[in-house]
Write a protein that binds this DNA or RNA. Structure first.
Lengths: 194, 194
DNA sequence: CCAGTTTTGAACTGATCAATACAAAACGGG
DNA sequence: CCCGTTTTGTATTGATCAGTTCAAAACTGG
């Protein structure tokens, strides 16, 4: 064959993801991507078509990772459906204030706001990802409705959409400077709609 | 004195606001600002310190305008408090799908997500603006509680925070591709928490 | 150890970035 | 009408932008 690649493509995508996540798409230069990945420009442009292509890969990887975390949160058999939904909201708050205290937020939300309207492939990826999360949440909500934990007369799809919107709302509010105890009371109040 | 300015500063800020709103802060170049305002570079840099300064002015103007619209919506004496809150959510949906069908969304949300974490003065402006909206909504919610329209045992501040979060959530969901009827049912479901 | 293929680093592309320099043009008070 | 001030258009700054070129280095199957 030939000379093997010295880096793992996944590691590079991970590093690029961190860069895009921390600074946004436009504000991340190709030089930033070289620094973040530790690769030269040739290596990056050899492995990926363009900055945009690398962003799509980074976004897809983020979605994969975060949806795995969401599935794990929703799989907790020790909790009621309602408690699981509350745990999802709590996770968002923990991310915004503890896990990522630098204010980077969520790459999916950032991409939806910063790039989706100017970028059809990214918009399509976001729409697909939304559908995945919707189905995960709908399944949990319906199980809660069977258990009598969540009002059975409400449309489970609508409630799933509502929970996703609540996640987005918490994230935007956190970026606007709302403090943690306030967001926790907002999360509690949100569940009153379920 | 001397030669008078041929343009009105407010008009220039308005035009810049449109540009930032449509494309985002990073993606708007100073040339774009010249094109949008119809001014030369010298005129812009003579009237404003920098691109960043012009952005702050544009953001402030946006907030002023939008908060005026919000006040008008909340002042409708013919509606109950709950109906006014629903009208606020409906306005967001109408903006996202009808008024601004190009997907530009809300400049405040865009700024919160794209720039606030890297930009202290913008973050401070967003925080102040949040406080203004919070007080307007809290006043309406408390009047609804006096009328028996909104459950009086809930904390009015928390409900106001919740409504602002709902606005942010609707906007993010709209950017992620959720359709209009779905968002309207989400808006209805949100009010079940009040 | 060599032929053939791929990766890599460094230099470089033209374009565009935000911002400035400077002089000519345009004005108002006297 | 003209002096002093401000605005404006043009040209330009050095830096950085995303992306390419190209040859040397690195590797593997034979």
């Amino acid at each position: 064959m030939a000379r093997p690649r010295k880096f793992e493509e996944e590691r590079a995508v991970d590093a690029a993801m961190q860069a895009f996540w921390a600074a946004g798409y436009e504000a991340t230069s190709t030089q930033d991507l070289c620094d973040a990945t530790g690769l030269g420009r040739s290596s990056i442009y050899n492995a990926f078509k363009s900055k945009h292509d690398l962003f799509e890969r980074a976004l897809a990887r983020y979605m994969e990772h975060k949806n795995g975390e969401l599935a794990a949160l929703l799989d907790d058999d020790a909790r009621t459906a309602r408690q699981r939904l509350r745990a999802v909201l709590q996770r968002i708050i923990d991310e915004e204030f503890t896990r990522y205290p630098d204010g980077r937020g969520c790459l999916v939300v950032n991409a939806a706001v910063e790039v989706s309207s100017h970028d059809a492939p990214v918009a399509a990826a976001l729409e697909r990802d939304y559908g995945v999360r919707l189905e995960m949440l709908r399944a949990v909500i319906e199980s809660g409705q069977r258990d009598g934990d969540i009002a059975a007369d409400r449309d489970s799809r609508t409630l799933a959409h509502l929970l996703i919107a609540a996640v987005g709302g918490l994230r935007v509010s956190a970026r606007a400077g709302v403090d943690r105890p306030t967001l926790e009371s907002v999360a509690d109040a949100t569940l009153a709609a379920f």
